[in-house]
Amino acid sequence: MAEKKSLGKEFSKGIIAENPVLRLVLGTCPTLAVTTSVSSAIGMGVAASIVLICSNVVISALRKVIPNKVRIPAYVVIIASFVTIVQMIVKAFVPALDAALGVYLPLIVVNCIILGRAEAFASKNPVLASAVDGLGMGVGFTVALFLMSSIREIFGAGTFMAGIKDLLAIFGDVSFNGFSVPFLNENPMLIFLLPPGGFFVFGILMATVNKLAESKGKPRAELRGCEACPMAKNCNLHSCENSSKEVNG
């Protein structure tokens, strides 16, 4: 019973309390880049989650075998392998998603969330807990991308989930292909889809989340200069410490 409860906690912390994007401020690159449409955001979320769960499981299973010295390169190889496998599967079965994500699909390798979870969680915890942690973080990442992309697509293009049909094609023929939002469809606010819109929506979203967190007595999400970086432990940089202090302070 106690075991079950703690697993539930590992899962749910990733979605709200420690949401990788909105609370830990990790993986900002894909959050800004692929959120111009809900369908590509969901695709990215699912692809990254699969990589996250698989790499967490493997790294956790090998945590006693991998020598500490070559820990980081070993994690990188494992993560890169899963990313490539996911990439090949996506190319073969969901080519529309491959076209939508482009270079951001292989770039999941350098998504800080994945290496960050490997270092912070999977390298210290048993397999099942790591898998659940990966699932929770993956769902949290997907939820954040979904929120961002919903705002951007509805205001910027006047549609919601357009093109989801190509994504669901692996589950057979789906007729649902998103909604079109009245009024905004004829007069889309294009700036939301453009790069400035991405930064702006993310900023407003962070402000809202911070406000909500404060009202619950939780600390605000802050960008953590270096300690968020999985390489931080390997670099005993005074400037690194300074920069993170600057950001936090």
Binding site: F199, F200, G203, I204, M206, N210, E222
Partner: peptide
């Protein structure tokens, strides 16, 4: 409520 990261992102938006 805008202090810290939110205002930084909005500023990045303007530079963009």
């Amino acid at each position: 409520f805008m202090r810290g990261l939110p205002i930084t992102l909005v500023a990045a938006s303007l530079v963009s």
